[in-house]
């Protein structure tokens, strides 16, 4: 294994301020799009906004961005707006999301700018990331994969967790967006024994840590901490639809707000800034 580079563990005040601003802008942009196209997953995109923001803006190198996998493909609208802010996608391309002239769909398609894997069916991303991590074993690149907590119900996710632990792939970081809310109901109600998640993943030879998934400083610190000889799982405790309480209900898994709700949401987000 290659030695880890020296990295910062703390986001300074300015960084924190910028991070908040970026996240707010991403959410506003998603809301804007939701007024033109109703096909998008708002709640699950808002829950992992801080996660993807920190990865794309403060953690991943140029090469690592080419290895990143969004296993919870339904949050691709968030990845599109981040890629737009980084000029990987143009405004025109994002404006044509789910439009006849466009090429960006509800789920990511490999081959589109900045998109490395076609996900959408859950439980695929972690295994693909395993293959990438194996291929990158002799490099200093880290492989980041973002999963939904619902994916923990897929057997294939556990096949990957077991393999990654056995292969000691310490170049792999899996971040689980633990918003505890799926299409139908809350995970702690449908699958109460899924908790504590950390212990289960740890038992397969991983390092697993929890943090507040909306706290960018915490995410930054955990991701950049000294690398152990184990893969790292971060259980990011999040809220679906964050920070807008109106999107907490499961119906917001796949729904766009009407104009009145949209205006209310924008107002709340602007006040947050």
């Amino acid at each position: 294994m290659v030695n880890q580079k020296k990295v910062d563990l703390i986001l300074n005040k300015r960084d924190i301020k910028l991070t908040k601003k970026r996240c707010s802008n991403y959410r506003i942009r998603i809301l804007e799009i939701s007024q033109k196209v109703s096909a998008l997953h708002l709640g699950g995109s808002f829950s992992c906004t801080e996660i993807l923001d920190i990865l794309f803006n403060k953690i991943m190198t140029k090469i690592e961005k080419k290895l990143f996998i969004l296993s919870k493909g339904h949050a691709s609208i968030l990845q599109y707006v981040i890629l737009e802010s980084q000029k990987t996608l143009s405004k025109f391309q994002v404006n044509n999301y789910c439009k006849k002239k466009g090429f960006l769909g509800v789920h990511p398609d490999r081959g589109n700018p900045g998109i490395n894997a076609s996900t959408g069916s859950l439980g695929h991303g972690l295994a693909m990331a395993t293959g990438i991590a194996l291929a990158e074993r002799k490099t200093s690149n880290r492989i980041f994969v973002v999963l939904s907590d619902g994916e923990l119900q897929e057997g294939s996710t556990w096949e990957a967790i077991i393999s990654i632990g056995a292969l000691k792939l310490n170049n792999l970081v899996a971040i689980i967006d633990n918003n505890n809310l799926q299409s139908l109901e809350k995970m702690n109600e449908s699958h109460p024994n899924m908790y504590p998640i950390e212990e289960k993943i740890k038992s397969f030879g991983w390092n697993a840590l929890s943090c507040n998934g909306h706290n960018s400083s915490q995410l930054f610190k955990i991701i950049n901490q000294k690398k152990e000889n184990k893969p790292l799982a971060i259980i990011a405790k999040t809220t679906k639809g964050y920070p807008l309480s109106m999107f907490k209900d499961p119906i917001w898994h796949y729904r766009s707000p009407n104009n009145e709700q949209y205006l209310k949401a924008i107002k709340e987000l602007k006040n947050e800034k």
Binding site: H124, G131, L134, S156, A160
Partner: peptide
């Protein structure tokens, strides 16, 4: 790589390797 009795990850890993 022997993934064991775990054919889904066998294919996923292969996909990831081919990506690289």
């Amino acid at each position: 790589i022997n993934v064991g009795v775990a054919e889904q990850v066998m294919i996923g890993i292969s996909a990831g390797l081919a990506m690289r």
